[in-house]
Design a protein around this nucleic acid. Structure first.
Length: 468
RNA sequence: GGCGGUAUAGCCAAGUGGUAAGGCAGAGGUCUGCAAAACCUUCAUCGUCGGUUCGAAUCCGAUUACCGCCUCCA
């Protein structure tokens, strides 16, 4: 039984999607005014892993993640770079696709953009206005938050105790126009020559929250199974989405609200964020760290807990990735002299590990215990592949299982290949030298290949190689 | 000020009443021509104080520290 922690109820709940066998999930994507940092990547990775596990469990997953390609930050970035909002969006959406590909995030994602859904956004806002949930003040349209009875339920905030402006991020002028400080903008009047669209309220552009309501329901229906994002989105972003959407449809907007914890950095473990300026972009990190390492680093802490980013944590992830890859490589190497048939005890053991894995992941995606099961499998595989006699089917079963479980964490395991004939010649020459006990020559070859990134290891079954 | 989270070995991190999973790093060992890889052994009484209980990392109370949200944020 799969259980998911729901931010709304603050409890783990049994997972039952609206339509049996199908999961409609929406994950808030970035505002594309900059390269994504590893905090953004954490969110993308956490939900990609969740998605892959749901698919492993047999669900058909419809996954939508937006690009917010118009807002104040976009406009400012365009202005500072003397270019257009569209050009900024194109540049960083392209970078996003490259970065997430390097992190092996599934490409099977619908990526709608706010600017491609303006008519739908206007319709949505108009509907809220007609229902009395929204009001127009001089071309700015606001949502009447108190009219939505459960406003504050998702973040568990008592609206009357909200200390307005406590985060010191509110523009002072904005309050003057609103009926109530907690109201929020659905549609913003354009200032001067900013990017804008015609609307019933004059030229303007969408507010921050509206695009997610519109696009999620457009692609996934009125009730989403899962809506995810970083925990900083709980309030106001997701609460406002919920208020808008349920006011519009009078139906439950989301069954399971899921929020990931932050990536922290530095001695104080501060939240990494663009506004604090303490961020590391994925774009830069990929220049010196394998995407798979980042993927594993982000995959091995429970999604609701913070992850500390440091050199040490990267190093540890790197060691663990190597452990998986080497184990896989050694296992695959044994195939060449395995005997036909299978050992039922192996299958029994592996099935137990799979059960442990599934039990862990079913508990709100407990990846630490899930990955522990994978390490257990690797240990078992290492012991098995060193036996004198191994069976082909058993070996293949372990290989398939290891490949499948690792892929849920976005780790692609592959056997090293050597296409360079010269290297093969050297390997064969070394085998002859060893047979003649010419260890000087054989060590020389091993050293020279190591310098070229090819590690040779002698086993009772022959010389095994892997790429460093 | 309101709300929430976290504190377990050098580091990361499981574990919700019965005498502390796993990983990284370290130490010792086995295997090997030597290596490498792998395997084996070894390494903590759970922030502090008090309480409940036959028994608590796990429940209750208090306390300390750190982090986050309170309309920029994943």
């Amino acid at each position: 039984m799969l259980q998911i922690y729901n931010t709304l109820t603050r409890q783990k709940e049994e997972f039952e999607p609206v339509t049996p066998g199908v999961v409609n999930m929406y994950v808030c994507g970035p505002t594309v005014y900059n390269y994504i940092h590893i905090g953004n990547a954490r969110s993308a990775i956490a939900f990609d892993t969740i998605r892959r596990y749901l698919e492993y469990r047999g669900y058909k997953v419809n996954y939508v993640s937006n690009f917010t390609d118009v807002d104040d930050k976009m406009i400012n970035a365009a202005r500072e770079n003397h270019t257009t909002v569209e050009a900024i969006a194109e540049k960083y959406i392209h970078a996003f696709m490259q970065d997430t590909a390097a992190l092996n995030i599934s490409k099977n994602v619908v990526h709608p953009r706010a600017t491609e859904n303006i008519p739908e956004i206007i319709d949505f806002v108009k509907n809220l206005e007609d229902q009395g949930y929204a009001y127009n003040v001089d071309g700015n349209v606001y949502y009447r938050a108190r009219k939505f009875p459960s406003y504050g339920a998702l973040p568990h905030i008592d609206v009357d105790q909200l200390e307005v402006g406590a985060s010191q991020h509110v523009e002072k002028g904005e309050f003057a126009q609103k009926e109530d400080p907690i109201d929020f903008a659905l549609w913003k009047k354009s200032k001067g020559d900013e990017i804008s669209w015609d609307s019933p309220w004059g030229k303007g552009r969408p507010g921050w929250h509206i695009e997610c309501s519109v696009m999620s329901m457009k692609y996934l229906g009125n009730t989403l199974d899962i809506h995810g994002g970083g925990e900083d989105l709980i309030f106001p972003h997701h609460e406002n989405e919920r208020a808008q959407s349920e006011a519009r449809t009078h139906q439950t907007f989301v069954k399971y609200w899921m929020h990931n914890g932050f990536v922290t950095i530095g001695e104080d473990n501060e939240k990494m964020s663009k506004s604090l300026g303490n961020f590391v972009t994925v774009h830069d990190l990929l220049k010196r760290v394998d995407g798979q390492v980042i993927r594993l680093l982000m995959s091995t802490t429970h999604y609701r807990r913070p992850i500390q980013y440091s050199q040490a944590s990267v190093q540890e992830a790197s060691s663990n990735l190597k452990k998986l890859q080497t184990g896989f490589n050694n296992l695959t190497y044994r195939l060449h002299n395995a005997e036909a048939g299978s050992d039922p005890k192996v299958e029994q053991e592996v099935r137990q590990i799979i059960a442990d894995f599934t039990d862990a992941m079913d508990d709100d995606f407990n990846v630490q215990n899930g990955i522990a099961a994978v390490y257990e499998l690797v240990k078992f595989a290492n012991m098995y592949s060193e036996r004198d006699i191994v069976f082909q089917n058993s070996l293949q079963f372990i290989i398939n299982t290891l490949t499948e479980l690792s892929s849920i964490f976005g780790i692609k395991l592959e056997q090293s290949e050597l296409k360079d004939e010269e290297i093969w010649d050297l390997i064969h020459e070394r085998e002859r030298a060893r047979a003649n006990k010419d260890f000087i020559r054989s060590d020389e070859i091993r050293e020279s290949l190591k310098a070229r990134g090819v590690i040779l290891e002698d086993t009772p079954q022959g010389t095994r190689f892997r790429k460093e």
